[in-house]
């Protein structure tokens, strides 16, 4: 991990009100303002992953909100981050992207307060999002406890499908389904989860289910067992994975994680590809005490989150290891 190495060379200030910093690979930074209110700050932006500018705006914005939801917070404000090749693309494209972003901001119940744009050869868009959370109710990677169940709120496979899209392999319906999945906010899942009260949460993005589960296993000092046949997967993802439509990031995730994996002998390589698939705007991975799991699942189903499945369990040993069964 190059970035980790670089960050390790830097010394960061400690502050009594900095409740979540960069040390635990969490989704956002959290700073206590008062005994009741802590500020959550995050930003995320990337290059287009779908062709339609409006859809790209929606997806990038949805993805940026995800970190606030994963921390158990409520987003308040958002700012645009734009890198735009003004000489090559017309203004309507940028307008469509910003329009898509704005609609998501409104859906999230937040307000747009500004932004910044620079000229760049490659188009990039995203948001900086600020939210709040009660300091005692922050959800991090570090709270998972042995006996917890793990629940996932969106199916895996957006990395594989996006690669297939890039390769011209998706039909209109598949493209549309993929777009809507990535443009679905984790708002409903987060609201259900914070109402009930859970132990830990993260959103599944670039490191895939395996990478993010590993972050929880390490930060919480627990072992995570994933039941691969229980994991929700976009219906065409297995087909496209077996056709070789797997993004490089997913292969790298698998390579990075495997020293921490304890896999069952009969796991087939395509399942591994799916579990490690780098997600864009993926769902929440929630670690919930077993006695609350039914309530959480019912809540998620009622709010129609894209998936609501128990995919694994938390054990005390072997610590920092993902067991795949």
């Amino acid at each position: 991990m190059d970035l980790t190495e670089i960050l390790n060379c830097l010394t960061f200030d400690k502050h009594p009100d900095l409740l979540v910093g960069i040390e635990t690979s969490d989704d956002a930074g959290v700073y206590r303002l008062t005994p009741e209110i802590a500020l959550i700050q995050t930003l995320d932006f990337f290059t287009p992953i779908v062709n339609d500018p409006y859809d790209f705006g929606r997806i990038a914005a949805t993805n940026a909100f995800s970190d606030v939801y994963a921390m158990g917070g409520k987003p308040l404000t958002a700012m645009n981050i734009v890198c735009f090749p003004i000489k090559e693309l017309d203004k309507d494209t940028l307008r469509a992207i910003l329009q898509g972003g704005l609609e998501v901001i409104h859906k999230a119940g937040a307000v747009m307060v500004g932004g910044h744009s620079v000229e760049d050869r490659e188009l990039k868009y995203g948001l900086s999002v600020t939210g709040i959370v009660h300091p005692d109710k922050i959800l991090t990677n570090a709270g998972a406890k042995p006996g917890d169940l793990l629940i996932l709120t969106k199916p895996l496979g957006t990395g594989i499908l996006s690669t297939a899209l890039k390769g011209g392999k998706l039909n209109e319906k598949q493209t549309c389904n993929l777009t809507e999945l990535m443009a679905t906010l984790n708002k409903d899942a987060a609201e259900v989860m914070t109402d009930i009260g859970v132990n830990a949460c993260t959103d599944i993005t670039g490191f895939g289910l395996l990478g993010h589960a590993l972050e929880i296993a390490k930060a919480s000092n627990v072992s995570i067992r994933i039941y691969s046949d229980k994991v929700p997967v976009i219906s065409d993802a297995i087909e496209f994975a077996s056709m070789g439509m797997i993004p490089e990031g997913s292969h790298l995730n698998q390579k990075f994680c495997r020293q921490y994996l304890d896999i069952s002998p009969e796991l087939d390589p395509i399942t591994g590809d799916i579990l490690a698939d780098a997600q864009t705007s993926g769902g929440l991975l929630i670690s919930v005490p077993e006695e609350k799991s039914k309530q959480l699942l019912n809540g998620l189903i009622e709010r129609k989150t894209p998936a609501a499945k128990v995919i694994g369990e938390v054990f005390s040993e072997p610590k920092g290891v993902i067991q795949i069964r």
């Binding site: 994975a241 077996s242 070789g244 439509m245 797997i246 993004p247 490089e248 292969h251 390589p269």
Partner: peptide
């Protein structure tokens, strides 16, 4: 990654 994809 591409070598792996080609094998698949």
């Amino acid at each position: 990654a591409s070598a792996n994809n080609l094998k698949r």
